[in-house]
């Protein structure tokens, strides 16, 4: 190519074509990748409730059964479970049932009631409110009510039922939370299942701190705790 101008023109046009071709090729390659699923995006975790180490398969199994059988999942018409239900669905003996909740010793606490009463006194109100407010990442709040062995089985079933309800009513009144029913799981165990030993007076925080605590007193109660498990 003798003509310098032509050579310059060809060089310029060829370079431009080369550059444009490279850019088009790069854009097309990006378009191809665009259609492929982004595995990095798929792997990103989704916000979820807390899952603490104590959420063992056995613990979660019991909780799941409570949720299914006691009205939190799917059965809007029913609230709570009674002793007979627990024995049936938990398939677990008293000590093992209580042991499941041991890891919650720092998280939960025991609301104490006067003998034969289900009233949530001022100490209990403050205690329940404190525990409720300490939700952090938990999904479910459990109320497990009991009655001491004094009195008949039927009377104690009814009493523990009322105690569980009292705590729940207090929470409803206090929080005005429309989603409360889907968060609170209740069990009332009467006096015939999973009674607490006297050692619970020392090891668990309760609403009557400083007051006399014995086996009867600790079972006139409702255990309350948020549960940091994904179910």
């Amino acid at each position: 190519m003798k003509n310098p101008m032509t050579l310059g023109l060809v060089t310029g046009v060829a370079t431009l074509a080369l550059m444009v071709g490279g850019v088009v090729s790069r854009v097309r390659a990006a378009e191809t990748r665009l259609r492929e699923p982004d595995r990095a995006q798929e792997a990103v975790a989704v916000a979820d409730h807390a899952e603490e180490a104590y959420c063992t398969p056995a613990f979660k199994q019991v909780l799941q059964r409570v949720l299914n059988a006691c009205g939190l999942v799917g059965q809007e018409s029913r609230r709570g479970c009674q002793p007979g239900d627990v024995k049936t669905f938990a398939s677990i003996d008293d000590d093992d049932f209580n042991a499941l909740f041991t890891p919650l010793v720092k998280r939960g606490g025991i609301v104490m009631f006067e003998e034969g009463k289900e009233d949530v006194d001022e100490f209990a109100r403050q205690f329940v409110e404190k525990k409720w407010n300490d939700r952090k990442g938990a999904r479910y709040f459990f109320i497990v009510a009991r009655a001491s062995k004094s009195g008949t089985v039927d009377k104690n079933r009814s009493l523990s039922h009322r105690r569980a309800n009292s705590v729940q009513y207090f929470l409803k009144e206090k929080t005005n939370d429309p989603d409360l029913d889907s968060q609170v799981g209740m069990l009332w165990l009467g006096s015939e299942f999973a009674q607490l030993g006297k050692d619970y007076c020392e090891t668990w925080e309760n609403s009557h701190a400083g007051k006399k605590c014995d086996t009867d007193a600790i079972n006139r109660s409702a255990f309350v705790s948020w549960v940091d498990c994904r179910l």
Binding site: P4, L7, G8, T11, G12, M19
Partner: peptide, 10 residues
């Protein structure tokens, strides 16, 4: 690209 062509011409 234009200035390269021009440079070659020069």
């Amino acid at each position: 690209a234009f200035f390269l062509g021009f440079g070659v011409w020069l």
